[in-house]
């Protein structure tokens, strides 16, 4: 099936199998490997991307369901060579170790801050419940999101 999607600001058209998952489309067809696959069953959140501004676990969706949509992956978050405050926050506040969960974590946090620009620590924890991390201990992820909230508020 032919689909047309806008990924990180650029439209593209592809002929895809109906059973192709969005995450496989992004990684294997569009070559955007910053979106990772962790659990394959919509638990870990490593594959989270933004579809029409909404955080979506891209293993829960078929590529054909994204026809006509605007998608932002981790590769599309930095603008003009400047890291997004969330990316800067995850770096400076040490919200990552192996980095595998990081892209999904950042995009979930992106939606969280879009809905609530100044979340409390409790709200950050609530907002990121759908993303798992095996390395960092999470505490610095909370700090990274606080950093971004502060930086974006300036």
């Amino acid at each position: 099936m032919k689909i047309r999607v806008k990924i990180n600001g650029a439209w593209r058209e592809d002929d895809v199998a109906p059973r192709l998952l969005l995450v496989h489309y992004l990684r294997e067809v569009a070559g955007l490997t910053g979106t990772h696959i962790g659990c394959e069953t919509s638990i870990c959140g490593a594959c989270t991307v933004l579809v029409g501004g909404q955080a979506v676990k891209s293993c829960t969706m078929f590529a054909v369901q994204a026809d006509g949509a605007e998608i932002t992956t981790i590769e599309g978050l930095a603008k003009d060579g400047q890291l997004h405050p969330l990316q800067q926050g995850f770096w400076e506040e040490h919200g990552l170790q192996c980095g595998f969960c990081t892209p999904g974590m950042i995009l979930s946090a992106h939606q969280l801050l879009a809905r609530n620009p100044h979340p409390t620590r409790e709200e950050i924890r609530k907002g990121l419940e759908g993303n798992l991390c095996r390395c960092t201990g999470y505490q610095h992820i909370v700090k990274a999101v606080e950093y971004a909230a502060k930086a974006s508020g300036k």
């Binding site: 990684r27 490997t33 910053g34 040490h94 990552l96 980095g99 595998f100 990081t102």
Partner: peptide
């Protein structure tokens, strides 16, 4: 000191074995 691989990981440019294609 901030980790030297922070930017490459937070911007999705770090290539894991699974990403080599």
């Amino acid at each position: 000191i901030d980790r030297v691989d922070g930017a490459v990981k937070s911007s999705g440019r770090a290539r894991y074995s699974y990403d080599v294609h």
